[in-house]
């Protein structure tokens, strides 16, 4: 880790008073900064919070939102809650994966631009089927709209 990294982590830790019971909030901040949880960062906070690494690893892998792998610049979450499922969310997921060459086991594109994952419910059931791109909600999706969305995002990136 660079001194820059250590400063980032120290700032995050001190904003949570080095309180071990706030380890989830600490990890959320780390993930917000790096877009994932780098292993060294967890080792570092383990020492600073006085928690075993195995415990921190256990917490990090328990919760769906934490990722130990680097995520794409655009994280696309496709809602597969009941309402979205009933209104055909699966074809949207399949379409996105098809376009981006992703699968059930591969969530992030090689260029590090896109991550596609499902979420059990965004609570935007009135807009079903819905998806989010970096927390911005896109309502009433169709495979067609999904294609356009990816196209738009790719264009914005100049690829």
């Amino acid at each position: 880790m660079t001194t820059e990294d250590i400063k980032v982590l120290d700032d995050i830790l001190s904003s949570h008073d080095y309180n071990p019971s706030l380890v989830i909030a600490v990890m959320q901040d780390i993930q917000r900064y790096y877009r994932y949880l780098p292993e060294e960062s967890l080792t570092y906070i383990s020492q600073k919070l006085g928690l075993p690494e195995a415990k921190i690893y256990g917490v990090a892998t328990f919760y769906e939102n934490f990722s130990l792998d680097a995520k794409g610049k655009y994280v696309i979450k496709i809602c597969d809650g009941t309402a979205c499922h009933v209104r055909n969310s699966v074809p949207i997921l399949e379409e996105m994966r098809k376009i981006l060459g992703l699968s059930d086991s591969k969530h992030t594109t090689d260029d590090g631009l896109f991550t596609v994952e499902t979420v059990s419910c965004l609570g935007a059931c009135g807009l079903a089927p819905a998806c989010t791109v970096n927390d911005e909600v896109y309502p009433a999706m169709t495979p067609e709209k999904a294609r356009e969305l990816i196209k738009k995002l790719k264009e914005a990136e100049g690829v």
Partner: peptide, 11 residues
């Protein structure tokens, strides 16, 4: 922690 898929009252 309204996690039920298909519920958004609490939200």
């Amino acid at each position: 922690d309204e996690g039920d898929p298909g519920a958004f009252m609490d939200r």
